[in-house]
Design a protein around this nucleic acid. Sequence first.
DNA 1: TTTATAATGGATCTTCTATATCCAGAATAA
DNA 2: TTATTCTGGATATAGAAGATCCATTATAAA
Lengths: 161, 161
Amino acid sequence: MQFSKSTDYALHALIHLGHSERSNNVGIKELSLSLGVSESYLSKIMSKLRQDGIVRAVPGVKGGYELARAADQITFLDVIQVIEGRQQLFECSNTSSRQHQLLAEEGAAQRDQKRPREKVCLVEKVMDGAEQQLHQYLREHTIQTILDEAFKHCTREANKK
Amino acid sequence: MQFSKSTDYALHALIHLGHSERSNNVGIKELSLSLGVSESYLSKIMSKLRQDGIVRAVPGVKGGYELARAADQITFLDVIQVIEGRQQLFECSNTSSRQHQLLAEEGAAQRDQKRPREKVCLVEKVMDGAEQQLHQYLREHTIQTILDEAFKHCTREANKK
DNA sequence: TTTATAATGGATCTTCTATATCCAGAATAA
DNA sequence: TTATTCTGGATATAGAAGATCCATTATAAA
Ligand code: SF4
Ligand code: SF4
C-alpha cells in the first residue's frame, strides 16, 4: 500500500510550476530535466492533471504548462485523487460470504422498518473513518505549503525578479 | 491506492476467530467456508498472521487457529501492517534530481553547523503527517470494536453458552 | 507408538497494474 | 505558413497480487 511514483512526479511537477510562475508556461522539456523523468511518461501525467483542471496546457512555440489556479488552492488530496483515482481505500469484495450475513445483515435486521436498506458494514465503517482522517489532513496541505517552507529564507532573491 | 484483498481476508478471519473463541481452534476449513476464500490462499494469510504473533496455530487432529491475544489488543493497524508491509505510504524515488537539490539541500544549507545532516524533505513531511493521522485512527480500532458493534444486541444468545 | 489430521512452506501459474516508450496527429503562437 | 509543443493511442516490460498444488512437518488422540 503505497502511493505510486506518478503521484510523486505529479507533486514535484506542480511544485516546479508553482515556483516558476513569474514567466508563464513551462515546457515538458524543462520539467523532465528538473525532475529527472522521461518526457514521454511525464507528459501522460501532465495530461491527467490538465483533464482534471489542475493545470492549463498550451501547445505551440512558446507553449507549456501553468497552474490552473493559485498554488494554495491545489491540495495534496486533489493531486493524489487525480493520479491514484477515487476508489475507496477499502472495498469489500465478498458480500456473498456466510460471514457477511452475520456481520451486516444481522445488524440490519434489528432496525427493519425504520431504515429499510441501509448499508451497515462495521468493517467499512472503521476503514472509511480512517480514510476520512487521511483525507482531512491532505486537504489542509497545498502546493503553496511546500513553496512557503522551501523558500521562506530567500525572499530577497524572489523580490529581485 | 487500495488495501489488498488479503487484508480484507485477514480482518474477517480474525473477526471469525474472535467470535468463536468459546471453543478453541478453528480450522482452515471452517474459515474457508465462512469467508468464501480457498483454503490454500487463506492458509498463506494465516501463516503470516502467525509469524507476526497475531494468532497461534496448532497442527493435528483437533488443531486450528486461535487469537494469540485478546481481541481488543489486535488493532486494525496491526493487521494491515502484517499484510501490507511496513513501508511508508510515500517514499521518494529520485533524490538525485535537480529539483531535490533546490527543495531539500537548500533548506538544509541554512542550518549547516547546527544540524549537519538532518533530512529535511518538505514533501515527505506532509505525507508522513498524513500517514500518522491514518495510523492513529487505525490504532484506536480493534477486532473487538467490530465484535462489540455486531453482537451487542444478542447478548442473550452469548450468555446461553 | 501409531495414526489421522491439520498447518507449513516451496514452487508455480495467471492476471493485473504501474511504469515506460514511441510515434502520428492536433493545436497554437509567432 | 511553420516551427514547436502538447495529445492520445498503441505497445512493451516488470513486478506484484491473487491463487493453486503438493510434499513435509508437527501434533493430539487413540
Ligand atoms: S461485513 Fe462488510 S467487510 Fe465484511 S463481508 Fe460484509 S460488507 Fe464486506
Ligand atoms: S524534496 Fe523530498 S520528495 Fe522531493 S525529491 Fe527531494 S527527497 Fe524526494
